[in-house]
Design a protein around this nucleic acid. Structure first.
Lengths: 216, 216
DNA sequence: ACATTGTGGAAGTGCTTGCTTACATTACAA
DNA sequence: TTGTAATGTAAGCAAGCACTTCCACAATGT
């Protein structure tokens, strides 16, 4: 009886928009009016889907992490022509950094760490992120790579490298080639525990013509 | 003629309070009323010193960086018993991380990057921070250390290590010993380009009793 | 004394913002 | 058709905010 609810459809439809908006503006600066406008509906519609703004942010946080992870998983599933999955991931991130705005949302959240829900969500996100990196790192090492640092530490260190690279890009303080060096050179060093003199750059895709990527 | 102004004195008196408040609450959550209360004056007094809230934040940003730098300079001036200044700095940071809330203010600022003044201030801050680390790193290397990564990259990488360590501490996701490992083990690896098997921890001050530090 | 200039407290102002309400409309089941 | 429940629009509300104004008072120079 009555009209069937479409809220679940809308939630799925709006999530990427919501996540993008939070990533772009941060928590405080994104108003519910602006968010509703971006979704093309009235504010009350959003409030029918989520109880309050915090919930919208949490949903965005979760979504953006899952989106990133999905990208990585897809990347790892690709046929790795000789290279370890870990190195492929590293070289990918060295070039396409933070496509989904993960770090931006995280930074926004870090200014709201007094809210226990947001705090818990961030802890969870970092735990999953760290576990993911660590898992890839271990697999990489088992596959024959040396490995100097203890894996737990190395995984955190690699997350740190990604973070500076993102901040540096955001501020325009670190150029593309430098970012690549930070992720690839320092990343391999941290992962493998030594400098590999022979290879001096992340392996490019076949044709170097794929340079012009979408940069919004 | 008239009463002599004490605004400059007040500015100096309030700066640490202002910086601490921004570090604790972030930009948006710190209201002018709260800030005035912490300084023990009315809001209008603050607005006589700085034209608006942005200016207060910028002043805090600058102050907190200078305070950090002063600490480091003092540390470097200490008699280095054999150890390079760089390693002393690293081991110090491995234990007393972000005492002045530098990273917290930076994160708060990163959510306001649309404001050109704040953006410029952050760029400047990072540039100075990076230059400082790089300078210490170069001095360390000249002093006989090997050095694998190019210094520019290594300096950014070290800043990245400090950043994760701070975030991890903030969220309670990374314990003290792990943070130490991230800064000291990974830090040395990045700085020197190889694992040093013999030393497996930052040199402690004489007595290990100095463990119980103020943790607010 | 007196004019002048700075000081601190409290109340006020206009705007923004998260969130709600009211309502006319639409899509379904019976 | 008819009853029911979900929908989109627009307006509204109370709280919070950055920032200002007002004013009695306290230091100074002459």
């Amino acid at each position: 009886m009555g009209r069937p609810s479409t809220l679940e459809d809308k939630r799925r439809e709006f999530l990427p928009i919501v996540a993008g908006a939070f990533a772009e503006l941060g928590y405080r600066r994104l108003t519910s009016a602006e968010l509703a406008a971006r979704c093309g509906v009235g504010e009350n519609v959003l409030y029918r889907i989520w109880p309050d703004k915090h919930a919208m942010f949490l949903a965005a946080l979760e979504w953006v992490y899952l989106a990133s992870e999905r990208t990585w998983e897809r990347l790892l599933a690709e046929p790795g022509n000789g290279e370890s999955a870990f190195l492929r991931l590293l070289s990918h991130e060295a070039r396409h950094l933070g496509e989904y705005g993960l770090h931006r949302i995280v930074f926004a959240g870090l200014s709201e760490t007094d809210d226990p829900r947001i705090r818990a969500a961030l802890q969870d996100l970092y735990a999953k992120f760290h576990a993911f990196v660590r898992r890839q790192l271990s697999a990489h090492r088992v596959a024959g790579a040396p490995g100097g640092l203890d894996a737990e530490t190395a995984a955190w260190a690699i997350i740190g490298l990604g973070t500076v690279a993102n901040v540096g890009r955001e501020l325009g303080s670190i150029g593309a080639s430098r970012r690549e060096s930070i992720l690839w050179d320092a990343g391999r060093l941290v992962a493998e525990g030594r400098i590999d003199a022979e290879a001096d750059g992340p392996p490019r895709k076949k044709r170097a013509s794929a340079e012009k990527k979408r940069r919004k």
